[in-house]
């Protein structure tokens, strides 16, 4: 004897429940649509931004010494170079001023674990909107002599130190001084132009 299964309760909500259910579904849908466009205030709306961003190849410094005959003998035949040069890259100091006031000052090294990649700079500083005089100065700190001192502290004495220039390396000193007028929430970008090997300011085009 097999009877049909009983009608489970509440499988068919009444009309009022259906209307309430439809209204709730609609409200949820509208809630989703509104949740999709919630205004978020990112800035207070009155200031401007000074952005310093660039990549530049640092100057390479090499410390060289002549290998002894015993050291040469210990090397495989195809690697016997009479002069061995250990390389490093120069350090720089970046200073950013606005109207004479120092906004930031930091020491820079090349990127990567061995600091042998490009210098990467990316700073954003809030400044008041209106007219400002921006000064950015990038100066090399290391010289060949300081590099020799650093290297010979732990290694055999070096014969010489030299800086080897490549095309595109950043000059020992870069300076930019420029007056800019910025509106609220506008950005002035100070970047390095590899072609002219100078710093330049880029402002929004109207």
């Amino acid at each position: 004897m097999t009877a049909p299964p009983p009608t489970p309760p509440r499988t068919s909500p009444g009309l009022r429940s259906r209307i309430a259910g439809a209204a709730l579904a609609l409200a949820a849908a509208v809630g989703i649509a509104h949740g999709s466009h919630v205004p978020l205030t990112l800035e207070d709306g009155t200031g401007a931004v000074l952005r310093v961003a660039f990549a530049a190849r640092p100057e390479r410094i090499e410390v060289c010494r002549t290998l002894t005959p015993a050291e040469l003998e210990a090397l495989p035949a195809h690697m016997r170079q009479p002069v061995s040069c250990e390389g490093t890259t120069a350090q720089y100091e970046l200073e950013v001023r606005r109207d004479g006031e120092v906004l930031s000052r930091e020491r820079l090294r090349g990127g990567g674990m061995r600091s042998d990649r490009q210098l990467y700079v990316f700073h954003e500083t809030a400044i008041p909107a209106g007219r400002s005089t921006i000064e950015v100065r990038l100066a090399r700190l290391d010289t060949a002599a300081t590099a020799v001192a650093a290297v010979t502290a732990e290694q055999p004495p070096a014969d010489s130190a030299r800086t080897r220039r490549h095309d595109g390396e950043v000059p020992p000193l870069l300076e930019l001084r420029e007056s800019v007028t910025l509106g609220a929430r506008e950005v002035v970008l100070v970047t390095y132009d590899g072609a002219t090997r100078t710093l330049r300011a880029v402002r929004p085009t109207p």
Partner: peptide
């Protein structure tokens, strides 16, 4: 989007932002 203008407010999708 413009790198030279910072919007005062951005309508954010709350579910993803």
């Amino acid at each position: 989007a413009s790198p030279f203008t910072i919007p005062a407010t951005v309508p954010v999708d709350l579910f993803f932002g």
